[in-house]
Structures are given as C-alpha cells and as structure tokens.
Amino acid sequence: MSAGAHAILPGRGGLFGTLSDVLWRNPRLTLFLMLTPPLLWLGIIYLGSLFALLAQSFFSIDEFSGLIRYEWTFKTYAELLRPSNLDIILRTVSMAAAVTLASAVIAFPIAYYAARYARGKWKALFYLGAMLPLWSSYLVKVYAWKLILAKEGILTWIFAKLHLTPVLEAWLALPVIGGNSLSVSYTGTFIVFVYVWLPYMILPTQAALERVPESMLEASSDLGGSPAQTFRHVLLPLALPGIIAGSIFTFSLTLGDYIIPQIIGSSRLFIGQAVYAHQGTAGNIPLAAAFTVVPIVIMGFYLWMAKRQGAFNAL
C-alpha cells in the first residue's frame, strides 16, 4: 500500500506476483482496469446505439423517395403531433395510468398481509408467490391469458355456469372498452397488462409497508381513528413511496410494450406497436425514433416526480 509496507516486504517474484503487487500499490489503476470492460461494453454498445437512435429522430424522411434525409430538422417531431399519432400517445398513456392504478389496488392487500401478518413459512410463501410470477416467462403468461379470454375459453364457461352470460355480453357491447370477445377488446388488454406487471408493484409496496412501525397504527387507533381514517391518514402516506416505486415499473413497462396489445386487444395501435411498424415495413426510422422519445420523456418526468416523493429509497 504505502512505501513503508514495501520496505518491510520484498517484492514477489514471477509474473503474477509482480502484477499483483502493482495492482495492490495502485488502487486507481486497479479501479481503472476493473471499470474499463463494463464501461466500454455499456458505453459503446448501449449508449452508443441509444444516441444514434435519438440523433435519427432529428432527421426526416423524404415523402417522395422514402429515403432518410440527413439534415437536422424538427419536422419529424411535428409529425408526431398529428391527430392520429397524438391518439396513439394518449391511448397508451391512459392505458398505462389505468394499469398502474389497478395494480396498486390489487397489490396493496397482498403486500400488506405479507408485511404485517405473514410470519415464517407464510412469509416465504408470499415472497415466492410474488417472485415466481415475476420471473416466469412473459410470453407464457400472455399465452395463458389468450387461453382464458378466448371466446370458447374458461372465462366464458364460468360466466355461463353462473348464468351471468348477459352481464358479459352487456360489457362487451359497451363502446371503446368492449369488442367482439374479451381477447380482442381493451378490457382484455387491460387485464393482461395488470396481470403481467402486478408482481412489480407488490414487491416495492411490501418493502415500504415492512418499514411502517406497528406502534404508529396503534397510536392512531388509540387516538380515536377509525380503521378507515388510520388507513387514509397514516398507512397510505407511509406506503406511498413504495407504491410510487412500483408504479415506475408498471407505467414504464406498459408504455413500451408492443406484444400484449398485438396479441390481445383491438387493432388500434399503442406506442410500442407504432414504433415497431414505423421501423419495420415502413422503414421510417426517424418517426420511429421520435416515437421512442415519447416514453423516454414521460418516464424522465415521472422519475423526477418520484424522486421528489422519496420513491427511490423504497426500491
């Protein structure tokens, strides 16, 4: 380390010994050597491509030749503001908001029970109960819902057995959220989104609830607060950073997904599908790039808000 240590110990012989000595005496060199490979990889492959993509959003496409014109322009962004494209953005953002809200509502009881009442074996069970669906195959989960929501599938069967078929039909007859069957309606898309991203909401919410001291809830009820008041004024504000941390995932993942609305949903596009279509068959990379800027900007704004709410400490 220091010159003193060197004076006591003789240097090591051999190539590896010398190398080891050099690294130990120069922590900065060691740090540099350790950081270079990962930074080169992430910097060149990831950031490089990301910036290349963002740069292309400032190019435009020539309407006649269909070729990309390499001049700096905001024309592509103006195109983003066309009603049809604004529709896509609005549709995706409202879906993301609805999915986030529903996940928060469904996740809260699971997280609260796991944090406060589950002990020992049950605790592990609840943890795995959120972890297994989180890590199991995304496509398999979507596929499972294709089976469930199909016209001849289990959900229609359950409604028929309960003599509730008219309810289902009335729901499907509704404008916007209805459709021919559940698997081609917004309702179907919504259910699958909630299902697939729910575990991302459970885990941070549970982490935040674990840190709520029980004495606070007792104090609230000792002071005459009803369970509803305790929930509204004590539990919810303390759990909020965790819920916001979870909502970062549910919101961001819904914004960028293009597979779920393609497989289960109506033919109207979401941002992800628009990106996919523009870069693929249309070959309009600038517009596709401009579309990807939308979720980046929205998420940037969202993260900034979340940071102010202290959500990052709950991750």
Binding site: Y46, S49, L50, A52, S252, L253, Y276, T292, P295, M299
Partner: peptide, 16 residues
C-alpha cells in the same frame, strides 16, 4: 437498459 422499455433498447441496437 432494464429501466427503459425494452423496445427502446431493441430498436436502438437494430438501427446501430
């Protein structure tokens, strides 16, 4: 790479 939606990583790599 995991915080941004996968489609952004995907299309960025493809165009690169």
């Amino acid at each position: 790479p995991i915080a941004l939606p996968g489609i952004i990583t995907g299309i960025a790599l493809r165009s690169a």
